[in-house]
C-alpha cells in the first residue's frame, strides 16, 4: 500500500468534500431561520449550473457569469421559499418537505427538456494541468474549488456578523418571537435565508461543474452526501460541516479506490444513519430540551 496514493486520494476526496460542505452550509442557513430545508436543493445546484453554462455560451465572460449565476440561484431560492415553504410554516406543518421535493422534481423535468439529458462540459479559464506538491498531484481547478468554497462561506459569515441585517438573521434563529418584537420581520428574514441558500447552491454548481460536467443528474449523488454532511455535523452547527465534509470526501475516495467505485456513495449514507442512531442532533449539534 502506497502512502502517496492514499495521500492523493485523501486530498482530492477532501476537495470534493468541501463542495458537500458548501451545500450542507446552505441547508444550515435556512434551518437556522425556519427549521426547514429545501429537499430540492440539488436541483438548484443543477439549474444554476445550466444557467451559468448558458450565460457562457451566449458570450458572457467567465467573471461576469459568476455573479449572474449566483443571482439566478438566489432567485430560485426565493421562489422555493414562496411556493413551497411559506404556507407550510404558517400552518406549522411539515408540508414543506413534500413541497420542496415536488418543486425539485419540476426543476429536474424542466432542465431535462430545456437543456437535454446529456452531460455537457463546462468551460473554465482555470487550468487543470496538475501541479506536484509533496508528491501529490493537484490542479489549479481543484484549488479554485477550495478557494471558492471558503470565499463564499466567508462572505456570508462576514455579512452575518458585521451588518445589522446579518445580526437580525442570527436574532431570528435565536428567538423568532423576540426578533419580531424588535421590528425584524421573520418572514423577510426567512426569505433572505432562502435567497442566500440558493446563492450558495449556485456557487457549488459553478465550482463543481468544470470537474463533473453539467447534466440533469449531476447533483443527485452530490445532494445525498450534502444531506449526510448536514445531518452528521448537525443542522445548527456552523463550521462543523467543513470538517465533516472533508472527512466524508476523503473517506469516499478511499472507499471507491479500495472497495470499488460503485460503493462510493455508501460511507456517507452509513454515516448518516449511524449519526442519527448515536447523536440525533449531529456530532456538533446542540441537544434540545422538551417543553410542554
Amino acid at each position: 500500500m502506497n502512502i502517496e496514493i492514499i495521500a492523493q486520494m485523501v486530498v482530492s476526496g477532501a476537495l470534493m468534500g468541501l463542495v458537500y460542505a458548501l451545500i450542507a452550509y446552505g441547508f444550515q442557513l435556512t434551518y437556522a431561520t425556519s427549521k426547514s430545508i429545501n429537499f430540492g436543493q440539488g436541483e438548484l445546484v443543477m439549474l444554476s449550473a445550466f444557467f451559468s453554462l448558458t450565460l457562457l455560451n451566449i458570450g458572457v465572460p467567465y467573471w461576469l457569469m459568476v455573479p449572474g449565476g449566483l443571482l439566478f440561484g438566489a432567485a430560485l431560492g426565493l421562489l422555493v421559499e414562496r411556493a413551497g415553504v411559506r404556507l407550510a410554516l404558517q400552518q406549522k406543518s411539515e408540508g414543506w418537505i413534500l413541497l420542496t421535493i415536488i418543486l425539485g422534481l419540476l426543476g429536474f423535468s424542466s432542465a431535462e427538456n430545456i437543456w437535454g439529458r446529456d452531460d455537457r462540459p463546462f468551460p473554465t479559464p482555470i487550468s487543470s494541468d496538475a501541479l506536484h506538491v509533496f508528491g501529490i498531484n493537484i490542479t489549479p481547478l481543484e484549488i479554485s474549488v477550495a478557494i471558492g468554497v471558503f470565499a463564499i462561506m466567508g462572505l456570508v459569515e462576514l455579512f452575518k456578523r458585521n451588518t445589522l441585517l446579518g445580526k437580525a438573521f442570527e436574532a431570528v434563529s435565536a428567538d423568532r418571537d423576540a426578533a419580531e418584537l424588535m421590528g425584524i420581520s421573520a418572514t423577510r428574514t426567512i426569505m433572505l435565508s432562502y435567497g442566500l441558500s440558493g446563492m450558495v447552491a449556485a456557487m457549488a454548481g459553478i465550482l463543481i461543474s468544470p470537474i463533473t460536467t453539467v447534466g440533469p443528474t449531476m447533483a443527485s449523488a452530490l445532494i445525498l452526501k450534502a444531506f449526510a454532511v448536514a445531518v452528521v455535523a448537525g443542522l445548527d452547527s456552523g463550521f462543523g460541516v467543513v470538517l465533516v465534509g472533508i472527512v466524508l470526501g476523503a473517506l469516499e475516495s478511499l472507499t471507491s479506490f479500495y472497495i470499488g467505485s460503485g460503493w462510493r456513495e455508501a460511507p456517507g449514507l452509513v454515516l448518516l444513519i449511524l449519526a442519527l442512531a448515536v447523536r440525533p442532533n449531529g456530532v456538533f449539534g446542540k441537544a434540545t430540551i422538551r417543553k410542554v
Partner: peptide
C-alpha cells in the same frame, strides 16, 4: 427524530 431528519434517513 421526526421531520426532515427522518425523511433524510429514509432517503439515504
Amino acid at each position: 427524530l421526526d421531520g426532515p431528519q427522518f425523511a433524510l434517513a429514509t432517503l439515504s
